[in-house]
Computed example of a mutant assay.
Amino acid sequence: MSAPAAPSLATSRLVGVASGLRAAPSDPARVLPVRDELADLFPWGGLRRGTTIAVRGSTALLLALLAEATANGSWAAVVGVPDLGVLAAAETGVVTDRLALIPDPGAQPSSVIAALLDGLDLVAVAPGRLADAHARRLSARARHRGAVLLPLGPWPGVDLELRCDRSTWTGLGLGHGHLRQREVVVHTRGRGSAARPGRATLLLPGPTGTVRPAPFEPPTELRPRLRDRAG
């Protein structure tokens, strides 16, 4: 079933209630919190209202970004990701009572996304059929409304891009066992205050399902010397 047209969605109970509960919607400089393990990826220490932050290569990273904000009262939506389930979001720490999933935004996705930006704090989007002109207008809408727009893929004129480049699962033995954790390397680049590139190595998910910092391992060439000192 297709999503309703933008006027109906804009007056729906979900968007109306979220708009009424959102704290300080007129303060676009406010920063929404992220988990401590992710804070160093952002020059603002979190998700700054009015920005467009692209997440590439990991839906798990997107959910990790939503977790702390929803736990602190923010409302979020994920648009155009039909294989994303509530259970996966909950395991990552997202408060699902404050999460709306719109698997198919219908024939006018930009209108649906614009309506969500008017009422919610964070809106994640699979770019899909959106033209660059529509994408830029949605970024302007987020900036005007003080929302955070989170495209899951390439997006023109983003303020910050987070990209997962490497992924290594651990936990399986010799053909048996369970995947317990995944180590990823996240690179950042952006513009303005976010122009300086950044990098972090994380467990996403960690052993408990949420994000954790990866344990430090010295470069291969240093390990013999460190073992000699320990002996």
Rank of each mutant, 00 (worst) to 15 (best):
A64Q: 02
A67C: 11
A67N: 08
E68D: 09
T70G: 11
G73I: 08
S74T: 05
A77N: 02
V81K: 04
V81R: 06
V81Y: 01
L84G: 02
V86C: 05
L87F: 15
L87G: 11
A88L: 15
A89I: 04
E91H: 13
T92S: 15
V94E: 09
T96Q: 12
L101V: 08
I102M: 06
I102E: 12
P103E: 05
P103D: 04
D104C: 07
P105M: 00
G106Y: 05
A107C: 00
P109R: 12
S110E: 14
S111Q: 03
I113C: 04
I113S: 00
A114C: 06
A115H: 14
G119T: 07
D121S: 12
D121C: 10
L122Y: 02
A126D: 00
P127E: 05
R129P: 06
R137V: 02
R137L: 09
L138K: 05
R141H: 11
R143M: 09
H144D: 06
R145K: 07
R145G: 01
A147M: 07
V148F: 07
L149W: 06
L149H: 06
P151Q: 11
L152D: 06
G153N: 03
G157S: 01
G157K: 02
V158F: 00
E161F: 03
D165V: 14
D165I: 08
R166Q: 09
S167E: 11
T168C: 02
T168E: 13
G171E: 01
G171L: 02
G171T: 03
G173P: 05
G175F: 12
G175N: 14
H176N: 08
H176M: 12
H176A: 14
G177L: 09
G177S: 13
L179T: 14
Q181I: 04
R182G: 07
